[in-house]
Protein backbone atom coordinates (compact mmCIF):
# COMPACT_ATOMS: atom_id res chain seq x y z
CA UNK A 1 0.00 0.00 0.00
CA UNK A 2 3.02 2.32 0.00
CA UNK A 3 2.68 5.33 -2.33
CA UNK A 4 5.50 6.01 -4.75
CA UNK A 5 6.30 9.54 -5.88
CA UNK A 6 9.94 9.23 -6.79
CA UNK A 7 10.53 12.83 -7.82
CA UNK A 8 13.78 14.39 -6.54
CA UNK A 9 11.73 17.37 -5.38
CA UNK A 10 9.82 15.07 -3.01
CA UNK A 11 11.17 14.51 0.49
CA UNK A 12 11.15 10.73 0.09
CA UNK A 13 10.39 8.47 -2.92
CA UNK A 14 8.10 6.18 -0.92
CA UNK A 15 5.45 7.28 1.57
CA UNK A 16 4.22 5.14 4.48
CA UNK A 17 1.27 2.93 3.64
CA UNK A 18 -0.91 4.48 6.35
CA UNK A 19 -0.97 7.82 4.54
CA UNK A 20 -3.83 8.55 2.17
CA UNK A 21 -3.10 9.44 -1.43
CA UNK A 22 -4.37 12.94 -0.71
CA UNK A 23 -1.95 13.32 2.21
CA UNK A 24 0.94 12.10 0.05
CA UNK A 25 -0.01 14.52 -2.67
CA UNK A 26 -0.37 17.44 -0.24
CA UNK A 27 3.08 16.72 1.22
CA UNK A 28 4.55 16.55 -2.27
CA UNK A 29 2.86 19.83 -3.12
CA UNK A 30 4.71 21.47 -0.22
CA UNK A 31 7.94 20.32 -1.88
CA UNK A 32 7.37 21.24 -5.50
CA UNK A 33 5.47 24.51 -5.00
CA UNK A 34 8.56 26.50 -3.91
CA UNK A 35 10.45 25.17 -6.94
CA UNK A 36 7.62 26.30 -9.23
CA UNK A 37 7.57 29.72 -7.57
CA UNK A 38 11.33 29.94 -8.17
CA UNK A 39 10.74 29.34 -11.89
CA UNK A 40 8.18 32.17 -11.91
CA UNK A 41 10.72 34.36 -10.15
CA UNK A 42 13.32 33.34 -12.72
CA UNK A 43 10.96 34.22 -15.57
CA UNK A 44 10.82 37.79 -14.29
CA UNK A 45 14.57 38.08 -14.81
CA UNK A 46 14.30 37.11 -18.51
CA UNK A 47 14.69 40.24 -20.62
CA UNK A 48 11.43 40.88 -22.46
CA UNK A 49 9.39 38.15 -20.76
CA UNK A 50 7.37 40.73 -18.82
CA UNK A 51 6.30 42.35 -22.11
CA UNK A 52 4.17 39.28 -22.91
CA UNK A 53 0.59 39.34 -21.68
CA UNK A 54 0.10 37.79 -18.28
CA UNK A 55 -1.99 34.99 -19.78
CA UNK A 56 0.77 34.16 -22.27
CA UNK A 57 3.36 34.22 -19.48
CA UNK A 58 1.20 31.77 -17.51
CA UNK A 59 0.75 29.48 -20.53
CA UNK A 60 4.50 29.31 -21.21
CA UNK A 61 5.21 28.74 -17.53
CA UNK A 62 2.64 25.95 -17.38
CA UNK A 63 4.16 24.24 -20.41
CA UNK A 64 7.81 24.89 -19.57
CA UNK A 65 8.22 24.72 -15.80
CA UNK A 66 9.18 21.05 -15.69
CA UNK A 67 11.75 21.54 -18.46
CA UNK A 68 13.31 24.53 -16.70
CA UNK A 69 13.46 22.55 -13.45
CA UNK A 70 15.06 19.64 -15.27
CA UNK A 71 17.88 21.91 -16.44
CA UNK A 72 18.17 23.61 -13.07
CA UNK A 73 18.39 20.36 -11.13
CA UNK A 74 20.59 18.42 -13.55
CA UNK A 75 23.28 18.14 -10.90
CA UNK A 76 20.97 15.95 -8.78
CA UNK A 77 21.58 13.17 -11.31
CA UNK A 78 25.06 11.70 -10.86
CA UNK A 79 25.72 9.72 -14.02
CA UNK A 80 29.01 8.25 -12.74
CA UNK A 81 27.64 7.00 -9.45
CA UNK A 82 24.22 6.25 -10.97
CA UNK A 83 22.51 7.98 -8.07
CA UNK A 84 19.82 10.61 -7.66
CA UNK A 85 20.06 13.09 -4.81
CA UNK A 86 16.70 14.31 -3.60
CA UNK A 87 16.34 17.93 -2.54
CA UNK A 88 16.31 16.89 1.12
CA UNK A 89 19.87 15.64 0.66
CA UNK A 90 19.15 11.90 0.60
CA UNK A 91 20.88 10.01 -2.19
CA UNK A 92 19.29 6.95 -3.79
CA UNK A 93 20.86 4.46 -6.22
CA UNK A 94 19.26 4.38 -9.64
CA UNK A 95 18.63 0.65 -9.21
CA UNK A 96 16.40 1.20 -6.16
CA UNK A 97 14.40 3.92 -7.94
CA UNK A 98 14.15 1.76 -11.04
CA UNK A 99 12.61 -0.95 -8.86
CA UNK A 100 9.90 1.58 -7.97
CA UNK A 101 8.88 1.76 -11.61
CA UNK A 102 10.79 4.93 -12.53
CA UNK A 103 13.12 3.29 -15.05
CA UNK A 104 12.41 4.85 -18.44
CA UNK A 105 11.95 8.38 -17.15
CA UNK A 106 15.04 8.27 -14.94
CA UNK A 107 17.17 6.79 -17.73
CA UNK A 108 16.13 9.68 -19.97
CA UNK A 109 16.86 12.17 -17.18
CA UNK A 110 20.33 10.71 -16.63
CA UNK A 111 21.01 10.79 -20.36
CA UNK A 112 19.95 14.43 -20.58
CA UNK A 113 21.93 15.47 -17.50
CA UNK A 114 25.05 13.77 -18.79
CA UNK A 115 24.83 15.42 -22.21
CA UNK A 116 24.20 18.84 -20.72
CA UNK A 117 26.96 18.63 -18.13
CA UNK A 118 29.44 17.55 -20.82
CA UNK A 119 29.02 20.99 -22.40
CA UNK A 120 30.50 22.59 -19.27
CA UNK A 121 28.29 25.66 -19.32
CA UNK A 122 28.87 28.62 -16.98
CA UNK A 123 26.00 29.52 -14.67
CA UNK A 124 24.96 32.57 -16.72
CA UNK A 125 24.95 30.41 -19.86
CA UNK A 126 22.71 27.88 -18.11
CA UNK A 127 20.35 30.70 -17.11
CA UNK A 128 20.16 31.94 -20.67
CA UNK A 129 19.55 28.41 -21.88
CA UNK A 130 16.74 28.02 -19.32
CA UNK A 131 15.21 31.24 -20.69
CA UNK A 132 15.34 29.76 -24.21
CA UNK A 133 13.79 26.54 -22.87
CA UNK A 134 10.92 28.45 -21.29
CA UNK A 135 10.02 30.49 -24.37
CA UNK A 136 10.40 27.38 -26.56
CA UNK A 137 7.82 25.44 -24.53
CA UNK A 138 4.56 24.22 -26.03
CA UNK A 139 2.54 27.19 -27.27
CA UNK A 140 -0.99 25.84 -27.05
CA UNK A 141 -3.34 28.72 -26.37
CA UNK A 142 -0.75 31.48 -26.80
CA UNK A 143 -2.52 34.62 -27.99
CA UNK A 144 0.43 36.63 -29.31
CA UNK A 145 2.57 34.10 -31.14
CA UNK A 146 4.60 36.80 -32.91
CA UNK A 147 5.74 38.29 -29.60
CA UNK A 148 6.83 34.87 -28.30
CA UNK A 149 8.64 34.12 -31.59
CA UNK A 150 10.46 37.46 -31.37
CA UNK A 151 11.44 36.86 -27.75
CA UNK A 152 12.64 33.35 -28.60
CA UNK A 153 14.76 34.67 -31.51
CA UNK A 154 16.26 37.39 -29.33
CA UNK A 155 17.18 34.96 -26.56
CA UNK A 156 18.63 32.37 -28.96
CA UNK A 157 20.73 35.08 -30.64
CA UNK A 158 21.98 36.32 -27.28
CA UNK A 159 22.89 32.77 -26.26
CA UNK A 160 24.68 32.13 -29.55
CA UNK A 161 26.63 35.41 -29.28
CA UNK A 162 27.68 34.65 -25.72
CA UNK A 163 28.91 31.16 -26.59
CA UNK A 164 30.72 32.31 -29.75
CA UNK A 165 32.39 35.11 -27.83
CA UNK A 166 33.56 32.85 -25.01
CA UNK A 167 34.39 29.78 -27.07
CA UNK A 168 35.49 30.98 -30.51
CA UNK A 169 37.11 27.59 -31.19
CA UNK A 170 34.09 25.50 -30.28
CA UNK A 171 31.55 25.90 -33.05
CA UNK A 172 29.76 22.74 -31.97
CA UNK A 173 28.60 23.83 -28.54
CA UNK A 174 25.67 25.97 -29.71
CA UNK A 175 24.07 23.36 -32.02
CA UNK A 176 24.72 20.71 -29.37
CA UNK A 177 22.90 22.83 -26.82
CA UNK A 178 19.93 23.45 -29.12
CA UNK A 179 19.66 19.69 -29.64
CA UNK A 180 18.84 19.39 -25.95
CA UNK A 181 15.52 21.21 -26.56
CA UNK A 182 13.81 18.24 -28.26
CA UNK A 183 15.29 16.00 -25.53
CA UNK A 184 13.50 18.15 -22.97
CA UNK A 185 10.25 17.90 -24.90
CA UNK A 186 10.52 14.10 -24.81
CA UNK A 187 11.32 14.19 -21.09
CA UNK A 188 8.34 16.45 -20.54
CA UNK A 189 6.05 13.90 -22.21
CA UNK A 190 7.47 11.01 -20.17
CA UNK A 191 7.10 13.06 -17.01
CA UNK A 192 3.51 13.96 -17.87
CA UNK A 193 2.67 10.28 -18.30
CA UNK A 194 4.08 9.56 -14.83
CA UNK A 195 2.12 12.41 -13.30
CA UNK A 196 -1.09 11.28 -14.92
CA UNK A 197 -0.58 7.76 -13.65
CA UNK A 198 -0.61 9.08 -10.07
CA UNK A 199 -4.28 9.55 -9.34
CA UNK A 200 -5.89 10.95 -6.25
CA UNK A 201 -8.90 8.81 -5.35
Amino acid sequence: GAKVLACPLNSCPVSPSDRSTQQVWDAFSQCFSPAVRDVVEFSRSIPGFHTLSQDDQIRLLKSGTFQVLMVRFCSLFDAKQRTVTFLNGQTYPLASLRALGMGALLDAMFDFSEKLSMLGLESDEVSLFMAVVLVSADRSGISNMAAVDKLQDDLINTLRSLLVQRRPNDAEIFPKLLLRLPDLRTLNSLHSEKLLSFRID
Binding site: Q57, I58, L61, K62, T65, L195
Partner: peptide, 27 residues
Protein backbone atom coordinates in the same frame (compact mmCIF):
# COMPACT_ATOMS: atom_id res chain seq x y z
CA UNK B 1 -7.23 14.72 -14.32
CA UNK B 2 -6.59 14.84 -18.03
CA UNK B 3 -3.86 17.46 -17.90
CA UNK B 4 -0.66 17.05 -15.86
CA UNK B 5 -0.44 20.77 -15.19
CA UNK B 6 -3.95 20.69 -13.69
CA UNK B 7 -3.01 17.60 -11.72
CA UNK B 8 -0.25 19.59 -10.03
CA UNK B 9 -2.35 22.70 -9.55
CA UNK B 10 0.44 24.35 -11.50
CA UNK B 11 -1.60 27.19 -12.94
CA UNK B 12 -2.80 28.24 -9.51
CA UNK B 13 0.75 28.33 -8.11
CA UNK B 14 2.06 30.22 -11.15
CA UNK B 15 -0.83 32.69 -11.20
CA UNK B 16 -0.47 33.45 -7.49
CA UNK B 17 3.30 33.86 -7.83
CA UNK B 18 2.90 36.21 -10.78
CA UNK B 19 0.06 38.19 -9.21
CA UNK B 20 1.93 38.37 -5.91
CA UNK B 21 4.90 39.86 -7.67
CA UNK B 22 2.64 42.52 -9.21
CA UNK B 23 1.01 43.29 -5.85
CA UNK B 24 4.36 43.69 -4.17
CA UNK B 25 5.67 46.18 -6.69
CA UNK B 26 5.78 49.78 -5.43
CA UNK B 27 3.27 52.19 -6.96
Amino acid sequence: FSDPASNLGLEDIIRKALMGSVDERPE
